[in-house]
Design a protein around this nucleic acid. Structure first.
Lengths: 344, 344
DNA sequence: ATTTAGCACTCGTATTAAAAGAGTGCTAAC
DNA sequence: GTTAGCACTCTTTTAATACGAGTGCTAAAT
């Protein structure tokens, strides 16, 4: 168990290092507010803290920097709730104050705000639409060969596909199909669509539409499962300002990873609804060995549907970032829920 | 006017430099295929080419590198049509072979392909929708307070806004409004919508809907002018592999510029339908002083509606990139035109 | 039993000097 | 007109040295 003095010193070192990115020496700690021991005493404590694994030295005669274990302890046990500045709060709140909002727009803006308020890169996963329920289907013919199929869900999500029209289907067939689909599929969660088409729709199509085969294929095309939810990034360039990423190869491998939406989605998928902090090697990718990732799910109707996250160096301003992410994810949850659930 | 020998030497230097990124010395040119002069002779020619402004020296005793004027001359007068490899052609063609396509998806994929086939960053501006004509409007209520408004254009573009419902409008009002809009606005180009609303729609609303004021405001909200066309990026990270961008500050300023969609849009907006090549300082931004940008507009119905572009170092593989960009922009033009215009 | 002053020691960084190497420009000969 | 030869220039590499921040340890002070 760490003594109070050790905790104080650990805290001082981490806070300083987060600020300066330089190894911290005993002298500077000894001079810091609230402590009155000589450098030699501090040195002894630092040696102990190193032995316990909370600190490390870049080389034998340098000052100390926090180890991953040090950061972990800091984050788990030593974090004082951080007061965000008026300006920060105002900034975030203003995002949610807008009256007319596209969900996607709000989510995208979240990424932008988050990165502009930190010097890190932000990632926001758009709301998962898998569970949301079909509200209405529209099929709008564009010309003889193509039509646009539009799906609207109860969460205001609009999904559209351009589909080619089989020659065998004429305008009245389309109308019939649309009616059948709207009649049978309203309220069905998107992930069940395919199943329901076979179960509920196929029979009706056979009865009412002449070229059944084309009609069914067309229907399946139209309602094909939509892709992953979108991933929005903000301020990747910020990472280039961090001294730990002055090595271009390191940045490159990070950026390459961040260009793979699938991987990123995997990394952040909202499986928990609390705050997740991954420090350095706790991340599963080698490219992130010098990074920390802080993320929080936001919810709709109580269920986690998306994620707000920050990627930065392990030397991250944890308290502030955590505050911001919580503010933002709460805001997103409220916004979604208010907008689409209240009117129920 | 340059002699044949000077042209040959200039060509050799540029080709070599594009390959190696190292200043080229007289000896290596002298040894290259197709020339049989001694290094000393080459040196004399190189000195002349330098005096004429086509070459420059990083320092007084180094080999030569092409100047911007050199590249310009190369691009304008010396470019042999480049044969793309089978693989490249197949790769691009496969993109356009798909049957069911979302315009947006194709455009996005274009950016990805373009960057994967080059070691540069690609930018693709989505098709301009300003001129396209309204096909249909749908307003779908989600709950008591919100509705989704969907605009479909004749080019298959789908635009949707979430709008809040004024309390004074009930379901039958919405239906009336939708009918009026579809009746009066079909075929109107998007940029004229606002004008037409005042001219054609306002009067009808006044006559048929009780709370005229809310209805008009709602209508305007619904059809609010949509944002800029989308900008898709691919392979920004590629730039980090280029030796000229090993300086992190340079990369940073480039990336910062590339994060501003507005600026990028401005830079590439499809004002000409030919190929545009901007070399180094010909670009208006300081961040691009070591970059070249090659772009080509793609067309719909004969009019330029979007742009395909590549950002790389001035030392760019011009012939290959030009070939690729032309292939791709032609492909996009064909695809758009076939898909949405043929059926007319 | 803590704490601290003192001091030798370590190791990274900056500085300088010297050497190596690639390539040029010029002159004079071919 | 072409080329061999050579001195010269300028960058890059390597080595040697000095500097300095910070440590660890010991012995004295509290």
């Amino acid at each position: 168990m760490l003594t109070d003095r050790q905790l104080f010193i650990l805290q001082a070192i981490i806070d300083n290092y987060i600020q300066s990115a330089e190894p911290i020496g005993s002298r500077s700690i000894s001079k810091s507010e609230g402590i009155s021991y000589s450098p030699a005493t501090i040195r002894n404590e630092m040696a102990d803290l190193e032995e316990l694994g909370y600190l490390e030295k870049p080389h034998s005669s340098s000052g100390r920097i926090p180890s991953e274990k040090g950061y972990r302890h800091y984050v788990d046990h030593m974090l004082l709730p951080h007061r965000l500045s008026e300006k920060e709060i105002k900034n975030v709140k203003s995002l949610f104050a807008e009256k007319v909002m596209e969900t996607e727009e709000v989510v995208k803006q979240s990424a932008t705000i988050l990165s502009s308020l930190t010097s890190y890169a932000s990632i926001v996963l758009g709301p998962e639409i898998f569970e949301s329920k079909l509200k209405q289907i529209q099929i709008i013919p564009l010309n003889m060969r193509a039509a646009v199929a539009i799906l609207v869900t109860d969460t205001g999500h609009v999904e559209n596909h351009t589909v080619t029209l089989p020659e065998s289907l004429d305008g009245s067939d389309l109308e019939k199909i649309t009616n059948i689909l709207n009649d049978r599929l309203e309220g069905v969660p998107l992930y069940k669509l395919q199943e329901e088409i076979y179960k509920e729709v196929a029979g009706l199509l056979k009865r009412h539409v002449s070229s059944f085969h084309d009609a069914l294929r067309f229907t399946l095309d139209t309602l094909q499962k939509s892709k992953h939810e979108k991933v929005f990034y903000g301020g990747k360039t910020n990472l280039l300002s961090q001294p730990e990423f002055k090595d271009i190869d390191k940045v490159k491998s990070i950026f390459e990873l961040l260009e793979q939406d699938d991987t990123v989605h995997d990394l952040l998928k909202p499986d928990q609804d609390g705050l997740v902090i991954k420090i350095g090697q706790e991340n599963d990718y080698e490219a992130f060995e010098d990074c920390s990732i802080i993320s929080a799910a936001y919810t709709f109707d109580g269920k986690p549907v998306g994620t707000v996250g920050i990627v930065g160096p392990t030397r991250m301003e944890y308290p502030r970032v955590i505050g911001l992410i919580q503010l933002l994810s709460d805001g997103l949850s409220d916004t979604l829920t208010n907008l689409y659930n209240n009117g129920k």
